[in-house]
């Protein structure tokens, strides 16, 4: 474009321009500094520190101890409790992710179709987002799924002549999964429903019209051929977010199953997710070296699962993951 003025421009890029560059650099780093310093202090240094701890025998101390190589990692991977916690979280994920997807999409479709009272229904499904896992666990454990006959679920079942169920406890049937899955569903489907509603509203209405002309009757067919494919990106976002969150489950397990003293841990031995195991190892047993090793194994797992899932969803059927 302005090729003729090159020498002139070079001349103009003189003192004034350099001063402007320097002031830009200054402004950039001042505005960035809280974020950069904070992340260095509370993300980068912890990771490096934790990595060092995980290779030493740091016990009841948070300073780096004697170098012991991969012993902590071997110890963690040899712990039955840790391996069981991975199985626990896998079972939990297998239930919670598809259920969350189906329920939140279902709610979104229903709310999207409602004309009158739409805002009221949306609020009813969305408001659990404001509630903490601790409060919800309390209501689920002592109110809805109280194992005694006066629990809401047991009272309801008694109308059909069904004896009270011990929801939370070591029985033949692991009823506590019902408690753990429903509490998370209730808390999070409203959030994902909002994301789905936003996705639904971006689908052009005349697509359905054209499909109708071509013989696609509203209902299952248009849902399968239009709605679902066009919600692809939204769906991926919902699945990835709910999966990452499920892997880091702690609050509801700790509060629904926990109880009594720290050492006994109540019913936690029934279903102990990795974060609870990590919490008990690192803080109950003061095993910071081993705890850090466990944390890194888990981080690696989460990243691996996220990446694999991204590829599977990203490339559809063509992927050849195991």
């Amino acid at each position: 474009m302005a090729t003729t003025t090159l020498p002139a421009r070079a001349a103009r890029r003189s003192a004034a321009a350099r001063r402007r560059d320097r002031s830009a650099t200054f402004a950039f780093w001042v505005l960035m500094s809280p974020m950069v310093v904070g992340l260095l202090l509370f993300t980068v240094i912890p990771i490096v520190w934790g990595l060092l701890l995980s290779f030493t025998d740091a016990r009841s101390q948070i300073t780096v101890g004697d170098w012991i190589g991969f012993e902590n990692y071997q110890w963690v991977l040899g712990q039955q409790e840790f391996l069981r916690s991975l199985r626990t979280i896998l079972v939990f994920t297998v239930f919670i992710v598809p259920l969350t997807f189906a329920v939140s999409l279902g709610l979104a479709l229903l709310v999207d179709r409602a004309g009158w009272g739409r805002g009221i229904f949306r609020t009813a499904f969305f408001i659990p987002t404001a509630i903490s896992y601790v409060v919800a666990s309390l209501v689920w454990k002592l109110g809805l799924f109280n194992s005694l006959p006066y629990g809401v679920a047991n009272l309801g079942l008694s109308n059909f002549g069904i004896d009270p169920i011990v929801w939370i406890g070591p029985g033949d049937i692991p009823w506590y999964w019902v408690v753990l899955v429903t509490v998370r569903l209730w808390l999070q489907v409203g959030f994902y429903m909002i994301i789905f509603i936003a996705g639904l509203q971006e689908i052009p209405k005349d697509l359905y019209e054209s499909a109708f002309v071509d013989g696609g009757r509203p209902g299952w067919t248009t849902f399968r051929t239009i709605t679902l494919p066009l919600l692809r990106n939204t769906s991926i976002a919902v699945i990835v977010l709910s999966l990452i969150n499920a892997f880091q489950a702690f609050d509801e397990f700790y509060n629904v199953l926990g109880g009594g003293s720290f050492a006994s841990g109540g019913n936690l031995s029934l279903a102990r997710p990795p974060l609870v195991w990590l919490y008990q190892t690192a803080f109950g047993g003061q095993e910071y070296g081993r705890g850090s090793a466990g944390a890194f194994i888990l981080t690696a797992l989460i990243i691996a699962v996220t990446l694999i899932q991204g590829r599977v969803l990203g490339f559809g059927r063509s992927s050849a993951e195991k």
């Binding site: 992340l39 912890p46 990595l51 948070i62 990590l278 850090s292």
Partner: peptide
């Protein structure tokens, strides 16, 4: 900054505890 998004925050609570402590 984007790479730090990859790290699940809840899992790094043990090492972060060490720094805060």
């Amino acid at each position: 900054l984007l790479t730090t998004l990859m790290i699940p925050s809840a899992v790094t609570f043990v090492p972060t505890y060490a720094v805060v402590s």
